[in-house]
Structure formats: structure tokens, C-alpha cells
Amino acid sequence: MDLAVVVGIDFIYAVATLALISIGLAIVFGMMRIINLAHGEFMVMGSYSAAVAVHHHVNIWIAILIVPPVVVAAIGAIIERVIIRRLYGRMVETMLATWGLSLFVVGILTMVFGDITEGVPTPIGGITIGSYQASGYSLFVIAMSIVTIAGVYLVLRTSRLGLLARGTMQNAEMAAALGVDTSRIYAVTFAFGAALAGLAGGILAPVSGVFPNIGGSYIGRAFITVIGGGPAALVGTISASTLFGVINQLATFASNPVYGEVALLAAAIILIRLLPQGITGRYFRGSL
């Protein structure tokens, strides 16, 4: 029974991390249709900003939860202004530009911090469940994932900015005709997506360690989740994370983490074959 609880936490944790690393991309790619191949590096910049803040004795919670989204949102806004703005509607060019950007960021991080693993201490200890131990931080990651998704839902659903963003993404010309400053909305939405990526990087920094190339291990899973989820950014991310996270963990428990990744990829291929538009292309249509 105790083991079931511990294993259950592992499953939910896998789903929560998938959702967390995908939600920023769901906004940028799912809503704005920008193939941001530098999404992983946005997360890494979040992790590094958390690590730097911790080294400067900033309170660990501020370092993990506040610093990364603010820093990465600012960087995202600059990148939108300098690069992305010129490439709206040109998918292939955006792909090339963001891929170059990702190489650039990895290079800069390696130059500044060196190709070594930085650590951020885990702020929560273990918890005892019967005769087993579970990581308290895993529960924190799960909670933060839920809070983040709820926050995104509230912003998109209830705020004026969310309404304008959704309207602009659906039909930019119509929105512009109605007096919306669409280029500003695009910039803000992109920065919002970047902030979410930074937040994910900050939250995961204590678990995974921080090194320049770690973005590569995020980006694949993030894209698979967002594409598997389909057009509805939020419901898509949640449903695809749940499906892929559970399959990944089943295979991991049956064999090892390598086959867990293999199972995730195999599931994604089958899903896209059966539902080319993603889960929300068929089910939960019209949801957010």
C-alpha cells in the first residue's frame, strides 16, 4: 500500500513535469504557431538564473519561483523584438532562426559558466510514507505544476489581456481592425511563454542539475507533448502530458528509464498517426 502511494507520486510527478516543461511551448507554438527550437534553452536560462541567484544568497524560493520567469521574460521580450517579430507566419525561417538562437545560447552559457554542472540545493527534505521514503520536492513540483496551469487558465480566460491574446491569435487582421495593437499583443504573449519556460527551468533546477546542454533533454519531450496535445493549448497539454507521462512511467517501471523514453516516443508516433491533429483535434474540441 505504501509502495503504491510512492509509485503513484512518481506517476503524477512524471505527468506534472511534462506539463510544466510544455506549457510555455504550448503558448508559443500552440497559440502563436512559432516553432521555437530554443524553448529548451529558455528553460536552461531559467535554471541558470536560479543558480546564480542562489549563489548570491537570494532566498531559495525567490530564486526558484520569481527570478527565473522575470529574467527569461525580459530576455524573451528582447528576442521577440530582435528576431521573432520579423518572422511571423514564416515557419521554416522561424525554425532556422530559433535553432541558431539555441546554439548561440548554449555557446554563451558555456563561455560564461563553463561546461560543468551547477547545483541548486533542494529546499525540501524527504517525507516518510509507511516504510518508504518519497521526495518532498516532487510533491512541490506537482503542486507548482497545478498552480501554473491554473494561473495560465485564469490569465487566458478571465483577463482582458488573455481575451485580446486569444482574439489576436485567432484572427490578427480582425483584431487589428478593432483597434488592438497586435504587435504588442504578440510581444507580450511571447514573453509570457518565455516566462513560463523560465519558471519551469527554475523549478526543475534543484532536481536535474544545471549545465549548458540540458535543454536538449527538454525540447524533444516538450514538442511531442504540445503536438500530441493538439490545437487547444491548455487541455491539449494536460491530456497529452497525462497520456505520455503514464506510458513513460509504466515502461520505466517495467524496464529502465531508457525504454521509458522509447515508449514515450513510440506512443507519440502512434498517436500522431491516429490523430494527426493531436488529442484536442478530435476530443475536447473548442476548449482552451
Binding site: L3, V6, D10, Y13, V207, S208, I214, F253, P257, V258
Partner: peptide
């Protein structure tokens, strides 16, 4: 015995398996 690539970062399930 479990094997991990050089960039593996998620050990949650392994830690549960070890406990079991």
C-alpha cells in the same frame, strides 16, 4: 542493475524501485 545514459536526470522511478 540499471543503466543510464550520460545525460539522464530523472531518477524518481529508480529510487522507488530501489526502495521496493
Amino acid at each position: 542493475t540499471e543503466f543510464f545514459p550520460l545525460d539522464a536526470t530523472n531518477f524518481g522511478s529508480t529510487i522507488s524501485k530501489i526502495q521496493a
